[in-house]
Write a protein that binds this DNA or RNA. Sequence first.
DNA 1: AAAGATATCAACCGCAAGCAG
DNA 2: CCTGCTTGCGGTTGATATCTT
Length: 206
Amino acid sequence: MGRSPCCEKSHTNKGAWTKEEDKRLITHIRAHGEGGWRALPKAAGLLRCGKSCRLRWINYLRPDLKRGNFTDAEDDLIIKLHSLLGNKWSLIAARLPGRTDNEIKNYWNTHIRRKLLNKGVDPATHRPLSTADHRSLEIRTDKGDGIAALRPRSPDLNLELCISLPFEERMVEVSMDENKKKSKCAEGFLRLGSPGLFDNGNLAMM
DNA sequence: AAAGATATCAACCGCAAGCAG
DNA sequence: CCTGCTTGCGGTTGATATCTT
C-alpha cells in the first residue's frame, strides 16, 4: 500500500509557472493571506497542488525577496552558518533576510562548494583538505537498517558545536543522526542568542 | 556554426514534524 | 494516547542557458 498522493495529480499542472498562474496566486494571497495551502489552489482557481503553490510563493513571489547576486558578506555568512548548522538551509535562510532556503541551497551547491574546494577546504567539514587524506575524510557506515551513511572519519571532525546548551536529550538520543543533532543544538544556539551571534545574523567569532 | 559538455536554478518528491480532533 | 491531515524541509531532477571544442 503506497502513500496517498498529496493532491489529485491527474488534474494538476506541473513544471514552470506561467505569468497567469503567478498572477492568480499573488492575487489570492494578497486577499486571503498565506496558509491553507491544500485548499488554496482550488480557491485561487489554480490547477496546481498546494505544495507547488507554497514553493512558488515562498521562493519567487514573496514581495520581500531580495533577488540578484549574493554579496561577499552573504557568502561569508552562509559559510559560517553552514559550518554551524550543516545542511539546515531553512535555518541558514532565516539569518539572511530576503533569501530563501532553496536559493541558498542552490547557491551553496553551485558556487560555494566549488569556492571552498578551490581554497582547499572540505565543504562538508569546513576543514582543510589534504591531498593525501581528503578521500579518507569520510567513511561509509551501515546503521543496521541497510542504509549507508557518510560520517567523518576523524573524531575531531565532529561539528557538534553545542558545548553549553541545555539540551539534555542530545546526550541520550543516540539514534538521532548527526545532522539532526547538529541542527537541534544549533537551533538552540541561535534561539538563545549566543554571545557569538549578533541579531543581524552576523557571527562575531568562529 | 554545430554539437557536446557543463553550469545554473526552478520545481518536484518523499519524508517527518506538528497539530487538531 | 492515537490517528490522519497539513505543512515544511532537504535531496534530487530536469529544463534551459552558457561555455568549450
